[in-house]
Design a binder for these strands. Structure first.
Lengths: 143, 143
DNA sequence: ATAGACCATTGACCATTGTCTATAGTCCAA
DNA sequence: TTGGACTATAGACAATGGTCAATGGTCTAT
């Protein structure tokens, strides 16, 4: 039997999020609907602190709330395998790498643009603005 | 005197955007309010095609619509200097670099996480899920 | 003349991740 | 008992960049 003695405010404080965020996560299904006191206050056990920290950590690694929801389900599904978890992480690794490559191309283009311009004089004949006028827009879109 | 002979549909098609997008850009002030025919149709000259392509190109380089708005103003301000334009580009270069560094840190963390797990067996004792439970969430936030 | 393609406006809606407001009920300490 | 802190709900609002629907007017080719 776990002690349920945390109000939403205490839970939020311990996990380092706001009360609004906890309720928002509840609406999204990231945090289960908790029991209520007689006066309808939500009460939580300390395990919910861990769950919120899990969410925070995963978010900081670039997982979206939907992806985190999947991870949380895996975490509590006894048939889940390490392979499934690992493949989520590997998918995210691929996505992050793709994003980095994409940004690197953008960076290259920006640096070329920047080098084309002396930075002196009126913008009337600014090579940067001219380049923006002419070139075909490359698509650097992440799918 | 420039020929104004493009309906919004033709303009959009030439620039490679949708009609909705043109009207949206007009609302946002990225595209000027055009003249109208007697029947209230918008009519454009070919210079607006160039303007839309400018927007597209700048967007592909990671500029937001607001930033593009600024660039467009610079482009048509006679007092504007190359230095001003260049400094916008340099700011964007800094931002893109920061984003890349940020993602690189995330990638590192993800790869560490991934290497910690063999990928075999039940997720009950998955080191990835355990790591997400424990670790302090690092902030990889771009400001 | 009429169908089909085009254009007009207003306003709602999409995803994402919350944040804030208004109104009202609850709990605790002095 | 009373004031301040806490909690409840529903729903609006934020930013970004559009997209779509509903309703109705216009243009053009047959």
């Amino acid at each position: 039997m776990v002690m349920k003695d945390l109000t939403i405010g205490k839970l939020a404080k311990r996990a380092g999020v706001t009360i609004d965020t906890v309720r928002f996560y509840e609406r999204c299904g990231l945090v289960a609907e908790p029991e209520r006191t007689a006066s309808n206050y939500r009460i939580y056990s300390a395990t919910e602190v861990a769950r919120l920290q899990f969410i925070k950590k995963a978010k900081s690694l670039g997982f979206s709330l939907n992806e985190i929801k999947d991870l949380l389900i895996l975490r509590h599904t006894s048939e889940a395998t390490k392979a499934e978890v690992k493949s989520r992480v590997e998918g995210k690794i691929r996505a992050v790498k793709a994003k980095i490559i994409d940004l690197s191309h953008i960076l290259e283009d920006l640096e070329k643009l920047n080098q084309s311009c002396s930075g002196h004089g009126s913008a009337d004949d600014c090579p940067i603005l001219e380049a923006l006028d002419n070139g075909e827009a490359k698509e650097h879109v992440c799918h």
